[in-house]
């Protein structure tokens, strides 16, 4: 079921990494010259999805298992041993067991997905992930009827994760999705960035990416996936249910109690970066159907 979703553009089409700057100048020139109406719109869409640099993506992370500072993960995550690695898939599945990382990779088709990434803290990036659809991994284990939710768990290794010594959250980090969300073609298990293996601070060796939800839903360094009948507990919701709901869909209309979610700041704009409007579902309108008839203010 790979390739069920395609970017409007892929990086290969238009944005070789070292040409970003050139392209920006070219687009600037196009816009200034007002060349061809249709082209102008397309150019704007391309501009919006221009990925952040490797340095930006890998130096500004929230991964509290390595500390609460944004640069802590880049500094300390080297200590996490990611090979060998296996993911326990259990619960309501036909073939429960430990799935080795190599075994998984052999069975999966890895593709590139350039996604917007919106943190609940009102900053955002665009990340060129490499990965496979979660749906494919779940199919490998065989989802049983009766399963309605998917629970995820991050590695819990105090000897390799210094942040676990502090009770910032109730460790281990856990997350969850409704099964239909988990099976949506946008939902990705990322194993790489910029065609390189995903660095530890970004959730090596494999992490979830749900681009229409706030970043904390996209749980890192997954060791366990459990299919359940009931809604599983999720870490931030346990820590503060008033501020972090189970769904946590990106929604400019529903503010975090402590800050507005109407706008966001793209990382990489420097000290004078402007804010930009946040888009409903982070711009991924194709997921709206999943929530038809639901009050998204109640189910935030």
């Amino acid at each position: 079921m790979a390739f069920r979703w395609t970017n409007d553009l892929t990086r290969a089409d238009v944005t070789p990494e070292r040409l970003f700057l050139n392209r920006r100048q070219i687009l600037g020139g196009l816009a200034a010259g007002g060349i061809a109406g249709g082209l102008g719109l397309r150019a704007e869409a391309q501009e919006a999805l221009e990925p952040n640099t490797w340095e930006e993506i890998t130096s500004y992370n929230n991964y509290y298992e390595f500390g609460t500072g944004k640069d802590d993960p880049a500094r300390y995550a080297d200590s996490l041993v990611t090979s060998p690695w296996s993911v326990t898939i259990d619960g309501l599945v036909d073939r429960p067991g430990d799935y080795g990382f190599a075994q998984i990779m052999e069975a999966m088709t890895v593709e590139e997905r350039i996604y917007r990434f919106r943190c609940v803290e009102a900053w955002s990036m665009v990340v060129p992930w490499n990965g496979f659809e979660l749906a494919d991994l779940l199919e490998m284990a065989g989802v049983q009827t009766g399963a309605r939710y998917v629970a995820f768990q991050t590695a819990n290794r105090p000897d390799q994760m210094p942040g676990l010594a502090r009770p910032v959250l109730d460790w281990p980090y856990v997350e969850g999705l409704r099964l239909d969300e988990a099976l949506h073609p946008l939902t990705l298990m990322a194993t790489g960035i910029y065609d390189r293996p995903i660095p530890n601070q970004n959730g090596a060796p494999l992490r979830l990416v749900v681009p229409w939800k706030y970043g904390f839903k996209s749980i890192k360094s997954i060791v366990r996936i459990t299919l359940t009948e009931d809604e599983p507990p999720t870490s931030w919701n346990k820590a503060n249910a008033r501020e972090y709901g189970f769904y946590s869909n990106v929604n400019p209309e529903v503010d975090h109690p402590r800050w507005s979610q109407a706008t966001e700041r793209r990382i990489g704009g420097g000290l004078f970066a402007r804010r930009q409007p946040t888009l409903m579902f982070n711009g991924y309108d194709e997921v709206a159907g999943l929530y038809e008839g639901m009050d998204l203010t109640e189910n935030f």
């Binding site: 500004y60 944004k70 900053w123 000290l271």
Partner: peptide, 15 residues
Amino acid sequence: LGLTGGLGVEPIKAL
């Protein structure tokens, strides 16, 4: 530092 990249890729919050 914020102007010159010394505060990381999100200098506003850092400052």
